[in-house]
Each structure stands twice: as C-alpha cells, then as structure tokens.
Amino acid sequence: MLLIVGLILISLTLALGFLGAFFWAVKTGQYDDTETPSRRILFDNKTTKNEPIIKN
C-alpha cells in the first residue's frame, strides 16, 4: 500500500513543478498584458525590403 504514497508524492512533485512554472510566468510579467498578444498574433508577418538592417 505504500506504493500509493509513493505515487502521490510523485504526482505532488509534478504538480509543484507546474505551480513553480506559474509563479515564474507571473513574476516575469507574462500575465501583465493579456490584450496585446491576442491582437499581435493576427498581424501578417510581411517582410519588406525597406526594413533597415540593424547591427548590434
């Protein structure tokens, strides 16, 4: 029966990983603006010749 405990602990660690990922996402500001990305994805990625090439 201790196998169940082992499985539960593994699933908890996994879930903690996702919680950590969520923390990271919030802290890096990925949820600060939910509106712009939803519009940005609709723009065509048209490449133009006029675009200046920038060297860093």
Partner: peptide, 19 residues
C-alpha cells in the same frame, strides 16, 4: 511595433495595449 521602419534609430518597440 513597426516603428523601426520609420526611423532606424529605433531598435525595437513593444505595445502594452491594456496599459
């Protein structure tokens, strides 16, 4: 977000619409 096509001094630009 295409501001750099207007002036090459702009390296990149990003809009935050809700703010």
């Amino acid at each position: 977000e295409n501001l750099r096509r207007l002036h090459q001094g702009v390296l990149s630009s990003r809009v935050n619409l809700s703010e």
